[in-house]
């Protein structure tokens, strides 16, 4: 392959910024200069005294600034850490509280043998404080900025709810291990209540939905069960199938109504 070098006259006109040199020629000269050291040297020789003075001054200033600037910091912190910082700072205290309540329930269950399992009774409510906080605008300083981004909605719904469940489910499994209750009966109501909170949340706000469900479950199921000292029918061993169906239905309905969660200012 042969290379055609620009003529000296072209280089001189390029160096002088001649407006008569058409755009295609300027472009051709520039592309050639990128690869051809000889022509760059010819260009340097073709510049005027004024231009050389300017280039020297800029180079000197640059050298001085580079020398004065501190050495760049090392690699910035990995994204995964940043993305989780909100989770650690805001959500973790609530999840720690949930874990403490579950541990206390398990301990009380040990002491009160013969009574209905406290862990089983409160299992449906375990993720709700975390879900409510994950969706509450006051819990996130950059909430107003985030609310105008495309990530608000399904992406954030799945991410934040999954973060809560990833913590609560193992905690429930550990707390319920010694109660002898099947894991399915512990986890399915927990998932169903999470989906119900999100579904109701599209209407009245997630925080209010969580508070409402906690209040209703406590009054209608937990209090009577403790008073009567027996498990309610809704948590009987053969109700797992119904809970599975309810979980599925509520999840599908919550996902269908996810548009309601795209704007969080409605109620929260």
């Amino acid at each position: 392959m042969t290379t055609t070098h620009p003529t000296m006259s072209q280089i001189e006109r390029y160096a002088a910024g001649d407006p008569g040199l058409d755009e295609a020629s300027v472009w051709a000269v520039e592309v050639h200069l990128e690869d051809c050291g000889d022509c760059r040297a010819r260009l340097a020789g073709a510049t005027t005294v004024d231009t050389r003075t300017l280039i020297d001054r800029v180079a000197m200033n640059l050298d001085r600034e580079i020398a004065a600037t501190p050495v760049p910091a090392g690699r910035s912190r990995p994204w995964s850490v940043l993305r989780h910082r909100w989770f650690v700072g805001t959500l973790l205290p609530w999840l720690a509280m949930t874990a403490t309540v579950l541990a206390s329930a398990a301990l009380l269950g040990e002491l009160w043998a013969g009574r209905p399992s406290l862990v089983l009774l409160i299992a449906p409510l375990a993720p709700l404080p975390g879900v409510a906080v994950a969706w509450h605008r006051r819990a996130d300083p950059a909430w107003e900025l985030i609310a105008a981004t495309p990530a608000t909605g399904l992406t954030m719904l799945l991410r934040r709810t999954a973060a809560v469940l990833a913590f609560v489910i193992p905690a429930l499994a550990v707390a319920g291990a010694r109660t002898g209750v099947s894991l399915a009966l512990m986890l399915l109501p927990c998932l169903a209540f999470t989906a119900a909170t999100l579904l109701l949340g599209t209407l009245v706000g997630v925080r209010r939905a969580a508070i409402g469900l906690i209040a209703i479950w406590t009054l209608v199921v937990i209090a009577p069960s403790l008073a009567a000292a027996r498990l309610p029918v809704v948590l009987a061993a053969d109700s797992a199938g119904i809970w599975a169906l309810a979980t599925l239905l509520l999840t599908v309905m919550a996902l269908l109504r996810v548009n309601g969660l795209r704007r969080l200012t409605h109620h929260d």
Partner: peptide
């Protein structure tokens, strides 16, 4: 969209 609120929270 680009949005700068009047009061914006930050980390």
């Amino acid at each position: 969209l680009g949005y700068l609120p009047q009061h914006f929270g930050f980390y």
